[in-house]
Computed example of a mutant assay.
Amino acid sequence: MNSIAGPSNSNTEQEDGSLIQLPVKNVSTDLIVPFLIRQKVLPNIDDALSTIIPTTNQPQCFNYNHHPHPLTLVIFSNEVATAVVGEQKNVIDAEGEMMLCDACITPIHKSCPPHMYYSCDKCKFFLHLSCYNLPSGLEHDHGEGLHKLSLGVKGALSWSFCDFCLFFTNGLFYRCEDCSFQIDVKCASMPAVIRHEANRQLKLIIGRYVKEVRDFDCSACGYTFSSYYRYAYASENCDFNLHPACAMLPRIVRHKLDKHPLPLAYPPYSHHSGDIYCEICEEEIHPKRWTYYCRECDQFFHNPCLTQSAIEYTNIKFGHQLVLEKCHRSDHPLTFTLGSLRHTCSLCPKIVYYDIAFECASCYFSCCDTCAGIDVLE
């Protein structure tokens, strides 16, 4: 494993006490704000976000390069609707949908300072205060020297592939025009050295995979590193290694097979006697691998089994509405979502349940991306 500069390069070394420990509770304040400090966008003080709050109390319109409409700064009121998920109060809109930031694709939290966010009055476009101030460009070393990356976005129905975590996103991302390297803003905010609560004593340093004397396995999922998994966070002696996607697994997820929030769990599972099995695939779970676990129902879930529904699409913001006259009536707009109305597409045999779908709740219609004529990966 060759050590290289991390996703967000910094001119200052991190002290042990200031290392970010994953999983973070709030991406916008615990991951992106430190990134903005390292990039010299914010000063290195405790209340750094206070330095970029507009000074007037009057409503203002703010132009943003990556959105066609002006944005308004919204200050939380006591009456704002929220939904409690784990330790956070996530803000929900008038339709009861969770409000997600269109840059980092994580929830807008009422409980986190500075208790405000940017919003578009014409569409469901939201930004954390920190994400609004992401730098338009940065220098990045992804193993081939420093490259200049520019901030961009494709759109709600056009996804970009992150070369660091290997997931798609329809949020903001940084791209190198010379080599086509792309990285989403969450991964770009990751420092070169981290800690993880699965093994708090170790410092994990970013590296790029190089075939050496022996193979390395990810301590979370057990998969072997290869040329496909280009990066890893590894301890000094390489006894504890994590794929970036595994290092960034969310603290809590939800799944249709369990009504409770599912926290990330680590071995040893001393509270559970005997073998443990995944509720989705019903196969035995390796006793040294991470899982998501519901203590109330005593249910375990493989991380890979949760991948598509809860993790693989973690960087995708659903909810965009559009009219597709060629496959459905024009007075019934369809919602871009993870399918929940039908098991298969209304127009073909393709399975859409808990996969990409365009749905009309009023008439129980659901079609796949192929029948809709939309290729989100194009």
Rank of each mutant, 00 (worst) to 15 (best):
M1G: 11
S10A: 13
D16T: 04
I20N: 01
N26S: 15
S28A: 15
V33L: 10
P34A: 12
I45Y: 06
I53F: 08
S77M: 07
V84I: 12
K89S: 15
N90T: 06
V91Q: 03
M99S: 02
L100M: 15
T106R: 08
C112R: 10
K122I: 13
K124M: 07
F125C: 08
L127P: 01
L129I: 14
Y132N: 09
E139M: 11
H140C: 08
H142D: 07
G143E: 04
K154Y: 11
L172R: 05
C176I: 03
Q182L: 08
R195Y: 03
K203L: 07
I206N: 03
G207T: 07
F216K: 06
A220V: 09
Y223V: 14
T224G: 02
S235C: 13
E236W: 00
C238I: 03
C246I: 07
M248T: 10
K256L: 05
L264E: 06
L264P: 03
E283K: 15
P287G: 04
Y293R: 04
A310V: 01
I311P: 00
Y313R: 10
I316T: 05
F318H: 06
V323H: 01
E325N: 12
T335R: 13
T337M: 12
G339P: 04
L341M: 14
C345G: 08
S346L: 06
K350A: 12
D355L: 03
A361N: 14
S366K: 03
S366M: 10
T370C: 10
L377P: 00
